[in-house]
């Protein structure tokens, strides 16, 4: 089967306009989403994952954010300037599950009203059919008593219930591209399992391309074919899933893999420190202050790709030279 690029993102830069300054939040991000494949996106909290997702859908307010770079859907540049067109695309060919479920619901509508309205703006079905579809979808996602849920208002539902309603809507659309920002964060593992199963089915049956943001390395290991690691707005490492887990290269990725509490009571091995604040981002590698193998020239590093072998690319000066990098030196 020929792999088809469904969404192609190149040189995406997003900056926040703040008091006559431009603060760059997402920096030079490129990736492509392929048919029937899942790209996992992981990274430090606040590194710009959600902003990346929102910008792909043209959901950032124009007067506060500046978005540069090119995003092509099936070879065509996305019409960000045409509000009506982008709105129609959103929901039909490109669907998104947001990180914060409650904010994407209208507090004055019951969940059922929200569900049927959304379905009906994109598909021609009667209200009654829409209602039936909704109930079916919710049952599939392991939500007991969907009829009851449909009559409730968003604030009356638990976080996990709302998240499933959003996923159900996205699943129903069978989009070409699904952008799922932490789709299972407020769910327990059994429901998470069920949802991942549904997402896998969507991927296999409708060949939907997915961008899956998650900080749960278990979810990423299970779902992703390829993984991109973000830090300080840059994608610092990208490789096939197995490579990222078995052979992480970037010092941040290595630290990340070690800090997971894998059923121990021993003190967790943490990456010391926190990422620099957005306002203070400067030149050079954003990981510099926390990196155990940082060198002086890292501060002058222009963050271009330094190594790319066999689909494994990394942005770190350690990999700029020819010599072999000692894996243990940095952790």
């Amino acid at each position: 089967m020929i792999k088809e690029k469904v969404m192609d993102v190149e040189g995406l830069c997003v900056s926040l306009l703040h008091r006559q300054r431009e603060i760059s939040v997402v920096r030079d991000v490129s990736f492509c989403l392929e048919e029937g494949k899942v790209l996992g996106l992981i990274g430090e909290s606040g590194c710009g994952k959600s902003i990346t997702c929102l910008s792909l859908l043209g959901l950032l307010e124009k007067d506060r954010w500046k978005v540069e770079g090119s995003v092509r859907l099936k070879g065509k540049e996305l019409p960000y300037l045409n509000r009506e067109k982008i709105r129609r695309l959103r929901g039909s060919s490109v669907a998104m599950v947001m990180q914060n479920p409650i904010s994407s619901f209208n507090p004055l509508l019951t969940v059922g009203q929200h569900f049927t309205e959304t379905i009906r703006t994109h598909k021609e079905v009667t209200r009654r059919e829409a209602g039936q579809i909704a109930v079916e979808m919710l049952l599939k996602l392991n939500l007991s008593e969907p009829e009851k849920v449909m009559g409730q208002y968003p604030f009356q539902l638990s976080g996990g219930m709302l998240q499933r309603v959003m996923i159900a809507i996205a699943l129903f659309m069978c989009p070409h591209v699904l952008i799922a920002d932490e789709p299972t964060t407020s769910l327990d593992v059994t429901v998470q399992y069920q949802i991942l199963k549904e997402l896998a089915e969507l991927r296999d049956h409708y060949r939907t391309a997915m961008l899956l943001v998650s900080h749960d390395l278990g979810v990423i290991a299970q779902m992703a074919d390829e993984v991109a690691v973000m830090y300080g707005g840059y994608v610092v490492e990208q490789a096939p899933s197995r490579e990222i887990f078995c052979n992480p290269m970037h010092p941040y990725t290595r630290g990340l893999m070690k800090s997971r509490p894998a059923f121990t009571k021993d003190r967790l091995n943490v990456l010391e420190g926190y990422p620099p604040s957005l306002m203070k981002r400067s030149r050079g590698c954003p990981f510099y202050e926390r990196c155990r193998c940082a060198r002086k020239d890292c501060l002058e590093f222009d963050m271009k790709e330094t190594g790319a072998t066999g689909g494994h690319s990394v942005r770190c000066l350690l990999y700029a030279g020819e010599e072999e990098v000692k894996m243990d030196a940095c952790s």
């Binding site: 964060t185 990340l256 800090s259 926190y274």
Partner: peptide, 17 residues
């Protein structure tokens, strides 16, 4: 109540510690 749910693994580890 789910204090770690939107934190990434490295920050989770810090908060847990």
């Amino acid at each position: 109540d789910e204090p770690l749910s939107s934190l990434d693994v490295s920050v989770q580890a810090q908060i847990l510690n």
